[in-house]
Design a protein around this nucleic acid. Sequence first.
DNA 1: TATGTGGTTCCATTATGTGAAACTTAGTTT
DNA 2: AAACTAAGTTTCACATAATGGAACCACATA
Lengths: 259, 259
Amino acid sequence: MNKPTDGTVGKALSVLDEVAKFGRPVRFSELLAGSTHPKASLYRFVQTLTNQGMLSHDPETGTYTLGIRLVKLAHAAWKQASLATVARPFVEALSLKVNENIHLAQMDAGQIIFVDKLKASDRFETMAQTGMVAPAFCTGVGKAILANMTPERRDRALQQQAYLAYTPNTHSSTESLLAELDQIREDGVAFDREEHETGIISIAAPIVTQGGRTIGAISIASSTSRQSLTSIQAFRPDLLATAHRIGEEATNWQFPTVT
Amino acid sequence: MNKPTDGTVGKALSVLDEVAKFGRPVRFSELLAGSTHPKASLYRFVQTLTNQGMLSHDPETGTYTLGIRLVKLAHAAWKQASLATVARPFVEALSLKVNENIHLAQMDAGQIIFVDKLKASDRFETMAQTGMVAPAFCTGVGKAILANMTPERRDRALQQQAYLAYTPNTHSSTESLLAELDQIREDGVAFDREEHETGIISIAAPIVTQGGRTIGAISIASSTSRQSLTSIQAFRPDLLATAHRIGEEATNWQFPTVT
DNA sequence: TATGTGGTTCCATTATGTGAAACTTAGTTT
DNA sequence: AAACTAAGTTTCACATAATGGAACCACATA
């Protein structure tokens, strides 16, 4: 579960994950309980992180939460790092055209991270979702990415899957998943057949640079009450076109050679 | 400029800021140029951060960007840490009622960080803005917070102001600022009189817990073409009411005592 | 006043980070 | 093709900075 922990920095950063895992303000002792580090060491980590602004300490309640510096950094990350910025116009266009929810995702440590989510309907809900994580093996975007990664990376990612049975349709082993991945690679798109959440389906396509690197995926998601696995097939051309355009754009989006 | 750098962790984290500052994918040598660390040390930091997912390395171009792990963490931060989550319903309500842009901000290291921004008009632009930073001394939210901090914190924050003249109306010294802060504290609301950006004005109120701690600010922002410094006075009651409600809510929002 | 629990500090030990310098590519010039 | 250059990577002896057991403090509750 814990990364092999490289160096002091690694250990300190892992504390951030611990805090994140709680999802609420957390006492030092609670952290200590779930931690492998001895008291004094953990204490120092928390101290350091706090006056670095990565954690914030509420003296009134004696609790820690993730710090706002993270929000600041993430904003920069979101803007510079990735897909999201480059893809925005295309995603918006697609959202308006098909009038369904669009998800844009990248992979990290075998997990899917949503870097953008546009809801067709609700005006406000949009933001709160960026940064959410989901398992790769049972989501459309996840499978689309897995199917198109380099074999080494895929193997590593597959190691990290947990195969929880979220719904009756969820894959339960690497074997069945691998079979589908082959088929997805051939077909060009992946489907979420209510594998992560009952009633939610999606059609997803990988985003590939012209150099052939898979850098993310985009999906059109809907509910079984609005669409069916058959009807969402209709989105295929628009989805693939959009994914392709984003891939192109991402390729050219190298930083302007300043020298 | 650099924080007093506590420990190895501090140094490593400062590298993240460096990368963020560029706002685009960055070469190792570029980082080295702007860094105080010797080559080998910086190299190790970058290595560590990279395989921690805090940076990401594009082997094709040999550049580094901020990693997605930050986005993941920031999501958690945004949800658990702060204001934003608690304040959401109130902010939305206010946004709908006054039909102007609402900003929600917190303070970090003398800077304003926007933790939520709701645009009255544009349906999409909302997200991209969370995490943005702005100077405290020339924004409505900034002054509202400064005016209501504890003296020690305020002094520290004032040290960190740069007093750039963004517009003709921008404060240029601590003295003039302090005078206004007194008046703001008395009045209860702060105004941005085109001090940060010409044509943009706002009315802001601090968010204070029942324990008396100022934890952020909320503002209604508009353009001089839509509103005037006089007309936005009309928002005062709604703004104050909302700020007060959020303050109350934040006070009670201690984590459920689990033990 | 005792007893316990969560939080903070000490300090001798040693593991870890340090950085000058050497090396390895890859790209450019003579 | 050889000679140069610049960017990135590895090495290694050294000293700083992290470590963690244990003692200590503050504040509850009995």
